[in-house]
């Protein structure tokens, strides 16, 4: 219950940053917050209350936490990092032409 509520609040915060903020870099930060919210939610709903999935001598494998979401989230983090790096490069390029980071320079996200 509380997992879903926190996820929705974080996701909407990130989405609010993309829609409303007047600075392209803050929009990229909002995108990262959205991705982080999904990763947090994924881990918290597949939690079994067990130990970390590494055998350390005296582990029992029957009540280990799920290793599959952790692998998927590692991939997701790397994808998010490359996307943000590339978006920031594009913002640097745009800054050379217009000297500002206002999304109204690119006509806003919803107009053409």
């Amino acid at each position: 219950m509380i997992n879903n509520l926190v996820f929705v609040i974080l996701f909407l915060l990130g989405f609010y940053a993309i829609l409303v903020k007047k600075n392209l870099i803050k929009m990229v930060i909002g995108l990262n917050i959205m991705e982080g919210a999904i990763f947090y939610w994924f881990i918290s709903i597949t939690d079994r209350g067990g130990m970390i999935p590494i055998i350390n001598g005296t582990q029992v494998t029957s009540q280990m936490n799920d290793p599959v979401p952790q692998a998927l989230i590692l991939t997701g983090i790397v994808i998010g990092a490359s996307t943000s790096a590339f978006l920031l490069t594009l913002i640097i390029e745009l800054n050379k032409f217009t000297n500002s980071t206002n999304p109204d320079q690119i006509g806003g996200m919803i107009e053409d």
Binding site: I54, I55, N56, S62, M64, P67, A71, L74
Partner: peptide, 22 residues
């Protein structure tokens, strides 16, 4: 999940299950 946590050490030889999956 069940197959991996029961058989990962035998099949892959790594103690870290996340690395075995990745």
């Amino acid at each position: 999940y069940h197959h991996i946590t029961n058989n990962a050490v035998k099949e892959t030889g790594s103690l870290n299950f996340v690395t075995a999956i990745l």
